[in-house]
Design a protein around this nucleic acid. Sequence first.
DNA 1: GCCGCATGCCACATATTGCAACATCTGCTT
DNA 2: AAGCAGATGTTGCAATATGTGGCATGCGGC
Lengths: 260, 260
Amino acid sequence: MSDSQNHKALAPRRHDEILRRLAADGSVGITELAAFFDVSRETIRRDMKFLAERGQLDLVHGGATLFEATEPALTLRSQENAGGKASIGRAAAALVEDGMVVFLDSGTTTLAVAHALTGKQNLTICTTSLTIALHMCRQPHVRVHMLGGEIDPSEEAAVGIDALDAISRFRIDVAFLGAGALSPDGEITDFTRNGAEQRSRMAATAARAYFVLDSSKFGRLTPLRIQRFELAAGIIVDAPPPAAMVEALERKGPKVIVGE
Amino acid sequence: MSDSQNHKALAPRRHDEILRRLAADGSVGITELAAFFDVSRETIRRDMKFLAERGQLDLVHGGATLFEATEPALTLRSQENAGGKASIGRAAAALVEDGMVVFLDSGTTTLAVAHALTGKQNLTICTTSLTIALHMCRQPHVRVHMLGGEIDPSEEAAVGIDALDAISRFRIDVAFLGAGALSPDGEITDFTRNGAEQRSRMAATAARAYFVLDSSKFGRLTPLRIQRFELAAGIIVDAPPPAAMVEALERKGPKVIVGE
DNA sequence: GCCGCATGCCACATATTGCAACATCTGCTT
DNA sequence: AAGCAGATGTTGCAATATGTGGCATGCGGC
């Protein structure tokens, strides 16, 4: 406020401060900012409109919030594209026979696989996901092994060195793994170092490994390549990916299985 | 958590906070939220109605609960003697300071302890219980380690050799352990071999260990004595056990703490 | 002087909120 | 089982806050 009458570029100053407050608090109010800058509310509204058009914030009644502020909670994510996930689940379940040892990765798509496994007899389930463990241990004729470790709150699953360590003790018949994306050149990639490492090991360890990917993940780019993903038996999807991706992937090894 | 005071929160901010609390606690109360945001209860009701129409929560009398696409986890309110367990939880939480490493055994009474720990800062929670891990990993400022192993469906918790093995890797400040019974002659006993062994190790390993026992377990007889239970710092109960039991127990070492 | 632009002011439309009155529900006592 | 007290849900309405568009003003640059 000491810099009052510098008439040059007042608007950018306000824009900066608005974005700064937004980053700090998650939301800002119009009246509050108008008082702070000692300008009319219309002016702040025009500032916000300008910033909103550039995608830097979301307008809401009374102010603005961070653009794409919060990742939806896990319970909500599982409801997105529920139909597609269910079809992936059914296709995955068809690959499982009574008595097998099955690894289920964390993620909402693998949770759909878990649901689709209802009715199989005598399975042994191995998982890092708290939600999957809880669900499967309530099923009859299923033995569940929870791989321990530090819990990642955003996944509600075990990650880290303990989980990596535990994986190597098991002999897995079939593994269903999540992933961050199927890249345009037919590689399977992930968001985090730990996740990529864990999935890499499973792909190499399990007798057969499948990545489950819903169609929202086609062509996206995430930072980490999952090493040795080409050892996987296939990927299971809810809709056919672009032909170029299919060709690039299958040339490396994994087959594409389209649910339903 | 730091926000809320100076200005009334924008509607989306309230929505976020409502969903956040819902994910963390499983349910939220209207009056409680109205006080937190300093708005009328009608406003909160309108917020909840909006969220309910979008399928993000379930309205119930007095508040809202998680939208249940799947079966409900075993919740506190569905259990008997909820009041007694809550008082045990409060007494246990009073023994926990910010920053501690806390072990929580499986069981509904220890789940009550977990609920009572809400608000502590910087805890590290170590548990074998899927439900407790899921609940605690939704709390801010809490790190959760899940001890892996085979899942016992009736406990919804890890048991067996892997869990036993994992216990020894941790340095625990305070452990809260369940048990099957407090026998008439002041011994703490259990139902299963695995459970007794696990609790025995924890009692010996943790800097301080407490058994949490609601009054329905006084004077019962279960088959397995928990070895070295007398190394525990105490037992936490919701009502005073018969004087003879208290005397017999305290002569061996553990103190009796009555909640509330 | 004239133009462009940011700003403020006004009038009116819309949205949000709180209040009050009344209907229900819940838990507890009798 | 009945009934009561307190808490909670519902609804209509009024007050206030906010959004929108038009227009005037002032300032700096040409």
